[in-house]
Design a protein around this nucleic acid. Structure first.
Lengths: 203, 203
DNA sequence: GAGCGCGTAACGCTTTCGGGTGAAGCTCGT
DNA sequence: ACGAGCTTCACCCGAAAGCGTTACGCGCTC
């Protein structure tokens, strides 16, 4: 009895992936989840042999979900799904413990091949890209305020403007900015915004 | 004879969309393209009644493709496809002349409903979000140098560092920065990076 | 109850950015 | 041959950003 769990916030993508992996030989059951939270909630009762997880999702991102999933169940096998070449997120996830990754622009054949390979060989791993030391283990978890400030930056608002938007003093915004820079390992706001996009923290 | 053209750089998404729209009543033929360039190349010989166009694609983005397509054939009907809430790109495309947009996290039913509606009523349009004047008509086409500078910004490099990377003086980098800000309508480098990500100019 | 992370705020200080302007050479296309 | 656009560089200047630091209240945890 081999089961696969597909986690993606988009119904269309979810359905597509469900159909695609359902045709892989040996797969008996495919379930779906629309968020990282749902995966974690259902995992204890309803664990699967393999998880296909979208990198960018609202709420818990794919990366953070994998991290939490593996801290609960180190044996869980996860393959990340990425749309563009947001290799930062993928590399991070693979470093966190995902077994590999798939670009969503992979063909159906590639998808099926990777899935069947991962199922056949429990130790299978896709060699991740070499990571810079700063990236390894750096799992950015921003607070709500920090994300609001980051979003403000991504809309071209100055610290003073963000302060007015959120009813904060400019100095407070600067404090949040400094903290989120440290968490993300960003050297300035432009870098922070870029990392925010790459890691699915903002859109 | 009603034909639909699906344009998306991802084979998987393309296939999914092809299958989904093929089931819409009245649709006789569905063709696909993997880039904006291909759509433009084939349009004169092989025009379709409706185009589903992905917003973010490498090379020509969806927005620029729509602009060029409509300047060739003002009667072309295009629906934009967006994955997240990158409404900036969608709103821009709708302002440029696309008939409407669909989130990729729409259900199959929604997709089919929108397509059949667009086919049934040639004048159908989805009311776009109110646009800021700066957005209307602002189609960002950056030069190679400007993109290099933008990429540098997205990696947290200062103007001086970008200059060292590209063997330019800091003042020259500033000039490129100023020009790309103007083109993008960005208020600062963080905003420019965000728009670069939303419009698929950087990753 | 001491410590930690978060939210809020402030002050001083240095660096960087962004805008304005001018200017030269280059390659296009018309 | 001319203009338009790209690339390169320079100078000035005010406005932000970013950093270090301090501080106080709050809730949570060990």
């Amino acid at each position: 009895m081999t089961s696969i769990l597909v986690c993606d916030d988009s119904p269309l993508a979810r359905e597509t992936l469900r159909r695609a992996v359902a045709t892989v030989p040996g797969v008996d059951k495919v379930t779906t989840a629309n968020s990282g939270e749902e995966v974690l909630r259902r995992w204890t009762a309803d664990r699967s042999d393999l998880v296909l997880m979208d990198v960018r999702m609202p709420g818990l991102g794919g990366v953070e979900t994998v991290r939490r999933l593996l801290s609960n169940d180190p044996n869980a096998r996860v393959i990340m799904l990425t749309m563009a070449e947001d290799l930062d997120g993928v590399a991070l996830a693979v470093a966190t413990g995902a077994r590999g990754y798939l670009h969503k622009d992979a063909s159906r054949a590639e998808l099926r091949a990777t899935v069947s390979q991962a199922l056949a060989d429990p130790t299978w791993r896709l060699a991740p890209r070499r990571l810079r030391p700063a990236e390894i283990g750096a799992v950015p978890t921003l607070t709500a305020r920090e994300i609001q400030v980051l979003e403000g930056m991504s809309h071209g608002r100055s610290n003073a403007e963000i302060g007015r938007d959120l009813f904060l003093s400019e100095d407070t915004v600067k404090t949040h900015a400094r903290r989120l820079f440290k968490k993300l390992g960003a050297s300035d706001r432009a870098h922070a915004v870029a990392l925010g996009f790459r890691w699915g923290l903002v859109r």
